[in-house]
C-alpha cells in the first residue's frame, strides 16, 4: 500500500491528540455518514495471530471468556459470542482424518485460518426480528444493538442465520460486533482491521472492497489456487435466501461448511407471512365449524 500524503504531517511516533480522519492514513478510506462500509476478510492472508480478537476485546472492553483449552487446534475461543466479536478459526488440513500427509498442496491450503465476525447482513434477520428497535442500521450501513433499548428478549439470537449475536446473561442484553460504530464516528477504522498485520481484514467502502476482492480472486486463480471464491458478495454463497449481500464478506478456499459457515442461509422474515396466513386460515376454518356446531345447538336445543 502507498503512503498517504497526509502521513507526512505526522512524523512523530507519539501523538498528543487523535489524527483527524485517521482511517485515510491507515485504510485509505475516508469515513462519511451515508456511505456503505464493511469488511473484506481474505482468509488466504490470515496467519492466525489473533491480533484482531485481542484488539476487539481491548477496544470494546469485552470480558474474557472460556479460559481453557478446547482441543480444536489453536482455536481456544470456539466461536463468536456476546463477549467475543472476532473469532479466528483454525482448520488443519495436514494429516486430516487420521492419515499422515505425504505431500502438500501449494499456498496455505494445508492450514486454513479465518477471522470470523458479524456479517452486517444487508437484510439483517436479527434486525428484522428485534421487536424493540434496539437493533438498527447505522449511517454507515452497519447493524448495531442499542444497549439502552434492548430488553433481552433474545429473539435476535435464533434469527441470525450465522449464529453470531447472543444475549449476555450477566447484563441481560444482546451483544455483537458493532463494526466499531464509535470509532467510525471518530474517523478511525475498526480496531480489528487496524491491528491485522497481513491485511487479511480490510475495512473500506463496500463497492471498493468488492472490486478489490474480485481482483484478489483472479490473482489467486492465476497463482494456481483454483479453489478461491467469495462468500457473501451478491449472488455468491452466503448471500442467498433474500439476504442479498453481506457487508462483511470473505474470501474462502474450501467449502463454507469447513469454516462453520452456512452455504445457503435464508432471511427469517421470509416465513412471517406464510406461517401467519396459514395459521389464520386454519382459525377461520375452525370458526366456521364452530358456527355450524352451535347454530345446530340453538335449533334443536342440544
Amino acid at each position: 500500500m502507498q503512503i498517504h500524503p497526509r502521513a507526512r504531517e505526522y512524523p512523530d511516533s507519539q501523538f498528543s491528540r487523535p489524527i483527524r480522519d485517521e482511517s485515510e492514513l491507515t485504510a485509505g478510506v475516508k469515513i462519511e455518514p451515508g456511505k456503505s462500509y464493511g469488511f473484506f476478510t481474505d482468509t488466504t492472508r490470515c496467519i492466525g495471530c489473533k491480533a484482531c480478537e485481542v484488539a476487539c476485546k481491548e477496544w470494546n472492553a469485552l470480558p474474557a471468556d472460556s479460559v481453557g483449552l478446547t482441543g480444536m487446534s489453536y482455536d481456544n475461543t470456539g466461536g463468536l459470542s456476546a463477549s467475543t466479536w472476532r473469532h479466528v478459526a483454525f482448520i488443519e488440513k495436514i494429516g486430516h482424518g487420521g492419515g499422515r500427509a505425504t505431500e502438500m498442496a501449494p499456498y496455505q491450503s494445508n492450514w486454513l485460518m479465518m477471522s470470523d465476525v458479524c456479517k452486517h447482513c444487508h437484510n439483517a434477520p436479527c434486525l428484522e426480528a428485534c421487536p424493540t428497535g434496539a437493533l438498527f442500521k447505522t449511517e454507515f450501513d452497519t447493524v448495531v444493538v442499542q444497549q439502552d433499548v434492548c430488553n433481552g428478549c433474545g429473539y435476535c439470537v435464533p434469527a441470525c442465520p450465522f449464529g453470531v449475536i447472543d444475549v449476555n446473561l450477566d447484563d441481560g442484553k444482546a451483544h455483537k460486533c458493532t463494526l466499531c460504530y464509535d470509532r467510525l464516528k471518530g474517523g478511525f477504522e475498526p480496531a480489528c482491521a487496524k491491528s491485522c498485520p497481513t491485511d487479511s481484514i480490510q475495512f473500506g467502502e463496500l463497492a471498493e472492497l468488492h472490486r478489490r476482492a474480485a481482483e484478489r480472486v483472479q490473482e489467486l486463480h492465476r497463482l494456481g489456487v483454483e479453489s478461491a471464491y467469495l462468500y457473501g458478495t451478491p449472488g455468491a454463497p452466503g448471500a442467498t435466501g433474500g439476504l442479498e449481500y453481506l457487508n462483511a464478506f470473505f474470501l474462502l478456499t474450501d467449502a463454507p461448511e469447513v469454516y462453520n459457515l452456512p452455504r445457503a442461509p435464508t432471511r427469517a422474515s421470509n416465513r412471517v407471512m406464510p406461517s401467519l396466513l396459514s395459521g389464520l386460515a386454519t382459525m377461520a376454518g375452525f370458526a366456521v365449524a364452530a358456527v355450524a356446531l352451535f347454530a345446530g345447538a340453538s335449533r334443536n336445543g342440544r
Partner: peptide, 23 residues
C-alpha cells in the same frame, strides 16, 4: 422470560411487520 424484564414496555415502542415477536 425477558433477560431485562424491567424494560418490557420497549416492546410497544415500535411496530415491525417483519417480527412476529412485535406482531
Amino acid at each position: 422470560d425477558l433477560h431485562t424484564p424491567q424494560r418490557f414496555y420497549n416492546m410497544l415502542r415500535i411496530f415491525k411487520a417483519t417480527s412476529p415477536m412485535s406482531i
